[in-house]
Design a protein around this nucleic acid. Structure first.
Lengths: 247, 247
DNA sequence: TGTCAAGAATATTTCGATATTGCGCGCGAT
DNA sequence: ATCGCGCGCAATATCGAAATATTCTTGACA
């Protein structure tokens, strides 16, 4: 419980430009709890489908039901949790159909955003991509402690890399949509390593090729590579998901 | 105040499959207030940029702050209102940049969804499109009472028509994204008639052509027509928005 | 006259408690 | 034995007010 460190989801939170907060960075309790709740879900500390009881959460985050409720409401609006009117909230369960929809949507939208980003990217953007890719390339996928679990560092670096690629798209709405789809996919990716692991896939190589195409301004090729990258991930997850759902 | 009749936004609410509600349709207070709040904003009863004070809203909707807060939180997550941490909420203001982004996003995503819808549409879908188009075609754009204001009936019929077109897209996520973008655009459209009015545009004709292309299964043409339709609307709004922002 | 600080006034955020709702169990009737 | 009914428990939804933050007002001091 508690004191959860930075993780993939934090990356999105960073995006919001911190407005001038004069006194003591007066961030609200709601915001804190929302961020933690979100991180806990995206990082897989809570299983998909789990019921989220108010009593548990108020104790866990040490706040009143109102605050928990607001956090859950926001997550529900994003689709990370689901709300059933008199039955409370639960983490959105995984389903093959949704994964398929999600992948199609991501291929289309993330592809579009990537193309726009490449077309508008300047030198600063290129630098960021190079940096993010370097970090990702040097980070091990398996966590040191438990090799069967995906390492938090890699997940973060992975998230940062893909975000860096998209960062130069000038259309905020589309960019946010792409990021929100990535978050949704994060839930699926979290439960994938045990199966995807023994695949004969060179994920790091895919990233290298993707970064190269983007940096040389070859939007068409980059989009093609991204598409393939996403579909491959889905294929690996598909098997895993089926295993989960039969539990 | 209060007792606001059905309107454009209600259309989206309908989508959510009403789950079996056994006793007295136990809809929650929160849901009611959220729906009304949303309708009030989308229908233009509240000006973009307006500050939304809790005191006003609790009185207006006759409920406690918690309920208002939840509604606002949900709307904020959708982008219809904005939340500034210790300063409350206000209706998202209009801006030319955002309108441009919005239009681009809609052309891309709504176009994509329309294509998928046409490709997957069956006879029931065709019937719905025909019906929705008929209703739209027979509804007058100007309201009887005040000809300078866009009639609520037309707005509703318009919304229903475009929704009907998209309804056969099997990808729920993409479909919802397209609908949510349409809602965002609704805010802009609401403030458009006074300028767009004297344009030499045949909006109903555009709808007729769009419906025809969709029904004959010509996805490419339909998408082209939709693209044009959306861009024309934006062009009309652009002028209007500039006028509003200088107020 | 301008600036700054203290305090009043106003608005938002958070809390704890009450009101509702849904669910399961036991009891009685058929 | 099974079905229907109602009581009580558990969990959520809603309330109203206390706690906190911000803005506005006022008045002293340079």
């Amino acid at each position: 419980m508690g004191e959860v460190a930075d993780d993939a989801s934090a990356a999105r939170t960073e995006m919001q430009p911190a407005r001038h907060r004069s006194p003591l960075a007066a961030i609200t309790r709601t915001e804190q709890v929302y961020t933690q709740l979100r991180a806990d879900i995206l990082s897989g500390r809570v299983l998909p489908g789990t019921k989220l009881r108010f009593a548990d959460l108020t104790e866990r985050y040490d706040c009143s039901t109102s605050v928990v409720r607001e956090g859950l409401t926001r997550l529900a609006e994003q689709g990370l949790v689901q709300s059933e009117p008199q039955h409370g909230f639960h983490v959105t369960p995984l389903s093959q159909d949704d994964l398929d929809d999600l992948t199609t949507a991501r291929c289309e939208i993330e592809g579009l955003v990537l193309r726009m980003s490449i077309e508008h990217g300047n030198i600063a953007w290129e630098s960021d991509v190079v940096a993010a890719h370097h970090a990702l390339d040097r980070t091990s996928m398996e966590s040191a402690a438990d090799p069967v679990v995906m390492s938090d560092e890699w997940t973060l670096a992975h998230s940062r890399f893909h975000q860096a690629l998209l960062a130069a798209c000038p259309n905020q709405r589309l960019r946010n949509m792409a990021l929100s789809l990535r978050d949704a996919a994060e839930l699926y990716r979290r439960w994938s390593l045990p199966i995807g692991h023994d695949d004969d896939r060179d994920v790091q190589g895919e990233h290298r090729a993707l970064a190269a195409a983007a940096l040389r301004g070859d939007a068409a090729e980059a989009v093609r590579l991204l598409d393939e990258h996403l579909r491959r991930t889905t294929r690996a997850l598909g098997t895993r998901e089926r295993a989960l759902s039969t539990q």
